[in-house]
Amino acid sequence: MTTAGERPADEQPSRIGDLVVDARRDRVGKVVGSTGERLLLRGPFDGREWEAFSCDVRPATVSDELRAKVADINERIRRERGRA
């Protein structure tokens, strides 16, 4: 049994390139680096990097990936409208 914030023993830690959800920030990111229990994440379509503890991330589902794609498209549209 695990307590809140602990990773189950059979769950693999995230590897570079994995798409994960940072539950603390409710953001989808790609793992671009790691140091101990900290992961360096970047938005799946570039963007700023941020750090998350490995206990705060979970593997992204197809739904999570779709949500990130829609958010990226919406952001691009907002930027384009701002230039017009």
Rank of each mutant, 00 (worst) to 15 (best):
G43A: 04
E51L: 10
M1W: 05
D46R: 15
L39E: 00
L39R: 02
N74Q: 13
D18N: 14
R25M: 09
D26R: 15
A4G: 03
I77M: 06
L19K: 08
R79Y: 03
V28K: 00
A71K: 13
W50A: 04
D46F: 06
R58G: 07
D72Q: 14
S34H: 07
G17L: 03
A60Q: 02
A4S: 06
S63Q: 11
R79D: 11
P13S: 04
G33C: 07
I16M: 11
E49P: 03
R42T: 15
D64R: 02
A68F: 07
R83C: 08
R83N: 13
A68L: 06
F45R: 14
D56Y: 01
S63V: 12
E51I: 07
L66D: 09
L40C: 11
G43W: 07
R83Q: 11
A52Y: 05
R7K: 11
T3R: 13
G17Q: 05
A84I: 09
N74H: 12
E80H: 07
D10I: 06
P59Q: 13
L41G: 04
S34L: 06
V62Y: 04
R76T: 07
R27F: 04
R25H: 10
D10H: 10
R83S: 12
R42G: 01
R7S: 01
V32Q: 12
E80N: 08
A9D: 11
D10E: 10
I73A: 15
E37Q: 10
D18P: 00
E51V: 11
R7D: 00
A68D: 10
R76F: 07
R7E: 04
D46M: 10
T35F: 05
A71R: 13
T2E: 08
T35Y: 07
V57D: 00
L66T: 11
R48A: 15
L39P: 00
G5C: 01
R78A: 15
T35I: 04
V20S: 01
G5I: 01
A60N: 01
A4C: 02
F45Q: 10
S54Q: 14
I73G: 04
N74Y: 05
R24M: 08
D10A: 12
G43M: 02
R7H: 05
D56C: 10
A84T: 10
G47P: 00
V32T: 15
S34Y: 15
G5W: 02
R25Q: 15
C55M: 05
I77Q: 02
A60T: 00
V62L: 12
K69R: 14
G33N: 07
V62E: 15
P8T: 00
R81A: 09
S54I: 11
D18Y: 07
G36T: 03
I73K: 13
G29R: 03
T61D: 01
R83V: 07
T2D: 05
T3K: 08
E11V: 14
R81M: 11
A68E: 08
A9G: 05
R7C: 05
S54Y: 06
S34Q: 10
L66C: 04
S14G: 09
N74C: 08
C55Q: 09
